[in-house]
Write a protein that binds this DNA or RNA. Structure first.
Lengths: 199, 199, 199, 199
DNA sequence: CATGAATGAGTGTTCATTCAT
DNA sequence: TATGAATGAACACTCATTCAT
């Protein structure tokens, strides 16, 4: 039992090292050797914990998403509807260093996903989770009468997702231009366009 | 007499081949050999037309942007303000196959740019052009009384850019989900939020 | 437990292979692949033991010099002045197959050094060692009264060095012409010109 | 007839360009393209004047030797014996920039010659010319009674050749250490050791 | 004669992966 | 379980050479 805990801890350690390498050197330089060096272990050991390099990168992406999801779970505890939606969005946007890093990793993976079927499928699966979460809170908001009557939930969800992706890309590529304040402005403008009336 | 070749045409040919490879196999597999194979020439010949691989990729990106810019120029001929802004946005969005390809290339470069200073600088320069164009048309629209009085031009420009980036990423990663109609819906919703009153 | 290898022995093995390739095929054909083949290992492994090719070649040169220096140390044990000087010179001259090989490597590097700043610096450093050794023994000889009174030590040192370099080049380029006997003749003629009176 | 003159002039031009490239960048970087660029012509043209790259380099070496020989011929006009020998040696030593360049090219070729049979043969042939010239003047000097009676002409010739090679190598590798004055000192010390009594 | 585009082999180097220890 | 040495293919790039023009 403690062995398994160690095993997971070791995996997480390696994945964190993977993050750091990607963030510092770019995904193209995230080699097995570089990751092993960052994790203070030998290159060969990675084969014990992961099938191959694709598995490492994919797992790093999933782990990143799980952490974000965990933070969203925590943030929405006791909230519903529009309030929950807003904190979820605030967790999804790159508003501090930690989330800048997550956005950087995410964007790095996009380019890879275009050329790798497995990674693209993984990205689809992951995407569904976020989509469903946002839509659920939107539906709650509508049911609570917090939105304008005629809101198209699918379209609204999509607008939220596009805002996250667009802001993440902008933030990562042109960090000076996309301040946290600017991001929140855009979010609130979008929520307002839903006819949002905070309960 | 030397063999006469159309230097620029040959360059364009190679860059088009580069696009196709990036779109089909991903930027990580866009090797010199793969590009040469796609362009039906030997790998060595690429050195005649480009300094190195970075030059090929950078030139491919710039060429893509130039084509988009040329189409924007053509589309805005005789138009001003809100009308010009809308056709510019319609050219920037991935609404057909050709522009899907452009978006795919763009997103592929984002990941690379994070790890390559030169490419990041290039991306910044290219970004300025689009930003300036959008802002100019927004200013025209305001001056022509086509916008709500209190519109923040910088914020509005940013919203447009984020929409382009977000929709491009979504379209490329989840093509089924982002139909052209959905894109135009989002664009018009955003323009409407500027208080747009078509002149 | 990792496979245990004698790191230094492996390095020496590779450097010896490098010597053989340079001696047999010339330094221009001393490629990484040729060296690896000669050392019965894969090309990639060389990267484990050396930074790059320049490191291999430079290390091969330094190793050659170290071996010569070690032999000089051994030969001069218990000797001083003119006697020490003579055995040092006899070690420096290409008087047998082993030292032919060393001379061949040395001359091969000269051409390279002209076009490579790092290698030129390395050669300078190495040269100083030999110069200092020769001059020390000359000074001893003078102090012991083994030389004519008015000997210019710098000039004499230089003459010795020039003899080594000149004989090495001649021996390597025209081996039939430069017999060991001829070399010793020239050395003794030079020593005699110093007014040498063996103590 | 004028055509042939042009042809030779073009060859010389290319060979001079070859010298300059070797002197500036080293023989390893003396590529066909670099030589063509330096000679202000296309790479393909070199195939008209030379069989291949080895022919270019070999011809450059021969041309260098011919120029030296021509200068020696001019310098020895009206001279014989020891006087002729001395001016020949003075032409052979790297005493000014022009001859530094010649020495640099010579040493560059040594390393190449070790790995190339043709070049080694060529070097042998060229060497014979110098050897014969020096020996002829030494014989003259002996016959004129300018040398000590018991001089071994072969040994003496060899000493002269070794002095040239040794000083050339030293001058090229450690230019600061080998001044023209030092070279002449060594030459005169050697001549004196022949028991030279200027006629 | 002359060009320079084109070729394809060869270079140094990097890398994911394997495996004896 | 963990190591790191070893492999061999792939990479970007360079080069001598060829050849249609």
């Amino acid at each position: 039992m403690p062995k398994i805990v160690d095993w997971d801890a070791r995996r997480d350690e390696i994945l964190s090292a993977t993050w750091r390498v990607i963030a510092r050197d770019g995904i193209a330089r995230a080699t097995i050797r570089a990751i092993a060096r960052e994790a203070h272990c030998s290159p060969g050991i990675l084969a014990h914990y992961f099938d191959d390099k694709a598995d490492i990168l994919g797992s790093a992406l999933v782990m990143s998403h799980r952490r974000v999801a965990a933070r969203m779970d925590a943030a929405t505890a006791g909230r519903e509807g529009l309030a929950a939606l807003r904190v979820v969005m605030l967790e999804a946007l790159p508003l501090d260093e930690r989330r800048d890093l997550e956005a950087q990793i995410e964007i790095s993976f996009w380019g890879r996903a275009l050329g790798t079927a497995e990674l693209r499928d993984l990205q689809h699966t992951e995407f569904e989770h976020l989509w469903a979460r946002l839509r659920r809170h939107l539906a709650e908001a509508r049911d609570r009468g917090e939105l304008a009557g005629a809101v198209d939930l699918d379209l609204a969800t999509h607008q939220l997702v596009v805002l996250i992706d667009g802001l993440s890309a902008e933030r990562v590529l042109y960090p000076d231009r996309v301040t946290p304040g600017r991001q929140v402005d855009m979010l609130d403008k979008l929520l307002a366009s839903f006819g949002a009336r905070p309960g």
